[in-house]
Amino acid sequence: MTQKPSAPALVSATLAQVYIQQDHLEQARRMLARVLQADPEHGHALALVARMQARSRARLYAGYRPGRGLAVRWHDAPELPDLHLVVAVFRPSAAGTTLYVTSVACRSAAGEHAFVFPGEARGPATATLCLARWDGARLRPVAVHEPLSW
């Protein structure tokens, strides 16, 4: 019996990002090591490695609810006095794009909050949100949610 030659292994920073999003962190680390072995200056891979090094156990869950705004839950956040839930909403307008940014302090490791936007931020719109702390010089993300569009 003869063996079929194996297909070349897929090496991709994008695949590593999918692994991260699905919490398959060991596969992501191995994939990123292979990408960086082939190209030590691969920008996307380097950014993902930095993201994984800074990764905490904190998680964000969010969804847009028409008429009720953006509902957000978080858990396993570090209990820091300067921890905030930050949201930015981008909406097309006659002048280009309108940006609305706000935040709320997180007083516990787990919680939920609903952001209601001016004019109800009806679609089309895209929001990005993160759990972050201000260290006096810059915002330090603890958890980042994938962009939401409606």
Rank of each mutant, 00 (worst) to 15 (best):
T102K: 08
A16F: 02
A88C: 14
A9L: 10
L46A: 00
A125W: 09
S93C: 15
E146L: 14
A33K: 08
K4T: 04
P8M: 02
R55P: 13
M31P: 03
T102G: 13
G96A: 04
S149Q: 03
Q17M: 06
L70K: 01
A33M: 10
V86M: 04
H44M: 12
L10P: 02
S108V: 01
P40I: 09
R138F: 11
T128V: 15
R73N: 02
P78Q: 00
E112P: 00
V101Q: 07
V72D: 00
F90G: 06
Y61G: 01
P5S: 12
Y64K: 00
Q37S: 15
F117I: 08
L36F: 10
P66V: 00
L46F: 09
S108R: 06
A54M: 06
R133G: 12
R122E: 15
P40N: 13
M1A: 14
L148I: 13
P118G: 07
A50Q: 13
A132E: 03
P141G: 06
A110R: 05
R59T: 09
A28G: 07
L129C: 02
Q27V: 02
G69V: 05
R73A: 04
L131I: 12
E41F: 08
S6E: 08
T98L: 05
Q3C: 04
L99C: 03
E146C: 15
G69I: 03
A50K: 13
A28K: 02
A33T: 13
A38E: 11
V104N: 05
D76T: 04
C106S: 03
H84I: 15
S56M: 07
F90N: 12
G63A: 14
A47D: 07
Q37F: 15
H42L: 08
R73D: 03
A77C: 05
F117G: 01
A95G: 03
R55F: 11
E41R: 10
G119T: 07
L83Q: 03
G67Y: 00
P5A: 05
G67F: 00
R133N: 10
V116D: 05
S108D: 03
A9N: 11
H145M: 11
W134S: 14
R65D: 09
A9M: 10
P66H: 09
P8D: 06
L46Y: 07
A62K: 01
R30L: 07
E112N: 05
R29Y: 02
G119I: 09
Q21G: 13
A127S: 10
V142A: 05
A38V: 00
W134N: 15
H44S: 07
R107A: 15
T126N: 08
R122G: 13
V86Y: 00
L80F: 02
L83Y: 01
R138H: 10
A105S: 15
A88G: 05
L46K: 13
R91G: 10
E41N: 13
E79D: 04
V11D: 10
A62W: 06
R51T: 13
L46Q: 14
